[in-house]
Design a protein around this nucleic acid. Structure first.
Lengths: 172, 172
DNA sequence: TGCTTATATAGGACTTGTCATATATGACCT
DNA sequence: AGGTCATATATGACAAGTCCTATATAAGCA
């Protein structure tokens, strides 16, 4: 249920419409929290119902957007969540299921799967590197942490590429 | 929808009851595909309805278990899936959302989150290392690939630990 | 003027997975 | 004989997310 808190996080920065929220998330946290448009609106509605977010219709504007503002309770809830130490959630890796039963399809086909994945990982590495170098190290805490979320993605694709090469060699 | 294929994979090795399946999955693929008991039984029922798995009641046995056997179509479906190159799925990392908005709670609390996560990652590294060393390298394709799924987990926790240390330093 | 695109919100149907609970029996122990 | 544990299967209620579709308006362009 982290979308709730991701949304509260964005609203803690400034009031946003559902539409803006979607764009903001796509532009920043998409690689570790891809958000579905329908889900954003539904979660927003839920947050409003729970009193963690206020809505304000914008009439003076050109568009009929609904500005969402985090309430004091919303911010308190966000900070509580941020400070809580949650155990790591388990991840699902369909690709590893394929590897686990790869014996059925033989080494050649397994190599093809690994190479395809390697290509994807390389592309992601390039993307992450490009964005990461655009954020200089040594900024304030916010910048440092936002940079860190990117580096996390980068470190994991790097590890993935290394693992693929290692596995490719083992399958040889 | 990979549980379907994970199940087909296990049934391709030998017929199993839902109960056995759960134990087999917990003992081998749990770290990349944790399976819920209810979900296993429901998916099994679905596979039977789809003609990919046959059921056989075991009467002679002490227990009233239902042996599940992959049909020819089931195995064909499994192999098709194994050979298909699927694009990597996006992962959700609640922890990174916390990092992204960590500026709200300050460096000290962020460090606490990172250290807690580091502890978990270290524990997982130890577990993975223990199991990985029990599987010697250089076996047949099946063994190599099963070892590879473990090494994948190991490489990723290693990367995670490195990233945590890097981030801890940046937050200093 | 008409076409397309971006803005903006929302509901329906569905899938996957989780959590709790129900049920029943055989095995083992005291 | 009674209690507990492992075996074995299954359902109900729910949460979270995906995909598709509907709706409406403003902006920009040809």
């Amino acid at each position: 249920m982290s979308l709730r808190h991701a949304i509260l996080g964005f609203l803690s920065l400034k009031p946003l419409s559902g539409y803006d929220l979607r764009k903001a998330m796509d532009a920043s946290v998409q690689h570790f929290w891809p958000a579905d448009q329908a889900q954003i609106y539904r979660t927003l509605a839920r947050l409003v119902a729970d009193g963690l977010v206020d809505v304000q219709d914008v009439d003076g504007d050109t568009r009929q957007r609904k500005l969402h503002i985090a309430t004091a309770e919303g911010l308190a809830e966000l900070d509580d969540w941020l400070r809580t130490i949650h155990p790591a959630e388990d991840s699902r890796e369909p690709f590893l299921i394929k590897m686990f039963f790869g014996g059925r399809i033989g080494a050649a086909d397994v190599r093809a799967l690994l190479l395809a994945r390697r290509g994807e990982a390389e592309a992601m590495r390039t993307t992450f590197q490009g964005i990461a170098t655009s954020i200089p190290a040594g900024g304030d805490l916010n910048t440092t942490l936002r940079r860190a979320t990117l580096l996390s993605g980068l470190r994991h694709v790097e590890a993935e590429i290394l693992w693929i090469d290692e596995t490719l060699e083992a399958v040889e």
